[in-house]
Amino acid sequence: MKILIQSNLARIVFASIFLLVGSESFAQFGRGQQGFGGRGAYGYGRQRSTIPQAQEAPKKEEPKTAAQIVDETMPSITEAIGLNEFETAVLSSVLKKYVQERIEAQILKLPPEKMKEVYEKITERQDEELRAGLPLEKYEAFVELQKNGVAKTIKNNKKKKKKRKKAKS
């Protein structure tokens, strides 16, 4: 009888220790009501996100063609220099041709000295063709635009217009 009481007592102690340890582990390791980290009933494993996952990696942007580059910049160049439609067409076609040559030179990946030489030759031929296709004042305005940039040229043109208006008044 003594052995029976001791075994029952041992079972009760063992069961109570098991229950205490088990409840502590559930609370400590996130197997309670809220799950690990308080994220609802997801528990362990990959946590779900409300942001949809992309199915494939975003594609690398393809380099722009010469025509795309020139077409993007022509409106601002036209505004800065004040070109008419014919002059815009001439400038656009010449720029497309020589921008394409520059892109092809970049693809060749020449040494820096050779690349500089090639760029200078391209620029010389472009200048000759523009000098022949544009009126002198428009050509000079384009050369000035290349030195200063489009934004600065537009700003200077606005200042000149304001000065002319003040002089006339």
Rank of each mutant, 00 (worst) to 15 (best):
Arg11His: 07
Pro112Asn: 11
Ala151Tyr: 00
Ala89Thr: 06
Asp127His: 11
Lys64Pro: 08
Arg11Leu: 15
Lys152Leu: 07
Glu101Tyr: 03
Ala15Asn: 06
Ala15Met: 11
Gln28Cys: 02
Pro63Phe: 10
Lys2His: 15
Leu91Met: 00
Glu117Leu: 03
Ala57Phe: 04
Glu85Cys: 00
Val94Gln: 14
Ala151Lys: 07
Arg31His: 02
Ala67Leu: 10
Ile69Pro: 02
Arg48Tyr: 06
Ile12Gly: 12
Lys165Pro: 04
Gly40Asp: 06
Glu104His: 04
Gln146Phe: 00
Lys138Ser: 10
Thr153Cys: 10
Glu62Ser: 11
Pro111Ser: 15
Pro58Ser: 07
Val90His: 12
Ile69Tyr: 03
Glu87Arg: 02
Lys155Leu: 09
Ile122Pro: 04
Gln146Lys: 14
Ile81His: 04
Ile69Trp: 09
Ala105Gln: 13
Thr50Arg: 09
Lys162Leu: 12
Gln146Trp: 00
Ser25Asp: 03
Ser23Cys: 03
Phe29Gln: 09
Leu20Thr: 08
Val90Phe: 02
Asp127Cys: 11
Gln106His: 07
Ala105Gly: 07
Lys163His: 00
Gly133Met: 01
Ser23Gln: 02
Ala10Arg: 13
Lys155Trp: 08
Lys162Asp: 07
Ser25Leu: 14
Glu101Gln: 15
Ala167Lys: 10
Ala141Glu: 08
Gln47Glu: 06
Gly43Ala: 12
Lys121His: 04
Arg46Glu: 03
Val118Cys: 02
Tyr119Gln: 09
Asn157Ala: 14
Gly22Asp: 01
Glu85Lys: 13
Ala167Phe: 05
Lys138Arg: 13
Ala66Glu: 02
Tyr44Gln: 13
Val150Lys: 05
Asp71Leu: 03
Ala132Lys: 15
Tyr44Asn: 09
Phe86Ala: 05
Ala89Ile: 05
Met74Leu: 14
Phe86Lys: 05
Glu101Ser: 14
Ile69Gly: 05
Glu128Gly: 05
Arg46Tyr: 00
Gly22Val: 08
Ala10Lys: 14
Leu145Tyr: 08
Pro111Ala: 13
Ile81Leu: 12
Glu117Ile: 13
Pro111Asn: 15
Leu134Arg: 06
Tyr98Asn: 11
Asp71Thr: 08
Gln47His: 01
Gln33Glu: 15
Lys163Cys: 01
Gln33Leu: 10
Leu9Asn: 12
Glu144Val: 03
Pro135Val: 01
Arg131Pro: 09
Glu101Phe: 05
Ala41Val: 06
Glu56Asn: 11
Ala89Gly: 13
Lys159Thr: 13
Ala80Asp: 04
